[in-house]
Simulated assay, not measured.
Amino acid sequence: VLERADFGEVANVMKHHGFDGADAMLADLGMSSYALDDPQRGFSFRLDGPLDMRMDSRNAIRARDIVNEESAEELARIIYTYGEERASRRIARMIVEARRRSPIETTGELRAIVERALGAHRRGGAHPATRTFQALRIAVNHEMESLAALLRDGPARLNPGGRMLVISYHSLEDRPVKERFRELLRAGGYAAIARKVIKPSAAETSRNSRARSAKIRCIERSAP
């Protein structure tokens, strides 16, 4: 059964289809490479396209709406909280200055604004716009709220012996997964499948560079 829904809706989706429990849950929190490489989706600063970033096109709010309508204070909060960008206030100020002249409509325009704020290059290899784009994508799609709902509702929906596995790609995602799984282990009724976080091998990352930051954590619901 295929269902177009959000991670946070797992309990309602299972109930709707009459599933009392699951033997396995796999949540891949990463971006689809197909979406990332499609300029019309607006996820990447590498490709110029409309500033959209919606995972689900049925949603009303796009990245351009946030960029053009939120206050400098709210933009700075989003960029700092979801992008862990220390220069969030400077970027927010430059966004507000730019949109006074004309609305910011494309990924290329936003990329240029961030480059003016931070410089075109940053030590460590990551492009200076990486954190800002990540933050806007997370805000547009309510990703942290969805993850919180999944971690709250998902484990209780496992059958005895069922496993829940989460693949995260940055610390903002991995931190709540780690904390929630530790909480469940301390409370009892669940067991850890691996003592340490599972990371891709050098051979895998050489074949697929986008896997390099992936982290897997997994728990199993104990038998009653």
Rank of each mutant, 00 (worst) to 15 (best):
N159E: 15
A92Y: 07
V96K: 00
A11D: 04
G154C: 07
L172W: 10
A149I: 01
N59W: 14
A187F: 10
M31F: 04
A98H: 02
R210E: 11
I61G: 08
D65T: 00
D37P: 12
V67S: 06
A76Q: 05
L110F: 02
A149N: 12
R186K: 15
L136H: 01
E183N: 14
R207T: 10
L110M: 05
N68K: 03
L36Q: 09
E220Q: 14
D38M: 11
I91Q: 00
L185M: 13
K199R: 15
A120S: 15
E105A: 02
D23H: 12
A148S: 11
I167K: 05
M53T: 10
S168P: 04
M144Y: 02
D48L: 07
N159P: 12
N59I: 13
R86M: 08
L36E: 00
Q40G: 14
A76H: 08
I104M: 02
R131T: 04
L147K: 10
D37L: 04
A117L: 05
D52K: 08
A192Y: 05
Y80N: 06
G124H: 06
R54A: 07
V10E: 02
L147Q: 03
T81L: 14
D37Y: 06
E220D: 07
I167Y: 08
G188D: 12
D38T: 00
E173M: 09
K215F: 05
T81F: 11
R58V: 15
E183K: 13
N68Y: 05
A35W: 09
I193S: 13
G189D: 02
E9N: 03
G18W: 02
L151P: 11
M144V: 01
S201D: 12
L36V: 03
A202F: 12
G119F: 06
E173R: 13
S32I: 06
R221T: 02
E85P: 01
S213R: 09
Y80M: 10
E85N: 00
I78T: 01
R207W: 08
G154T: 07
D23V: 11
S206T: 15
M144D: 10
F181T: 01
M164V: 05
V166W: 02
N68P: 02
Y169W: 11
M144T: 00
R116Q: 09
S171T: 12
S206N: 15
N68T: 00
G42T: 03
L147I: 09
E204L: 10
A129W: 08
D174L: 03
S146T: 11
G189F: 04
F181Y: 05
R186N: 14
E145Q: 15
L118K: 07
G125K: 14
K178G: 03
A149E: 14
M94E: 06
Y169V: 04
A139L: 09
G189R: 09
A203W: 14
R212C: 06
A192R: 13
L185R: 14
A203H: 15
D23W: 07
A139M: 08
A129I: 02
I198L: 13
G124W: 08
V67I: 13
R100M: 07
R217V: 05
R93S: 03
I167P: 07
M164I: 15
L165D: 09
F43E: 00
N208K: 00
N68G: 12
S206P: 07
S102Q: 10
S209H: 14
F19N: 04
I61R: 09
R180Y: 04
K199S: 15
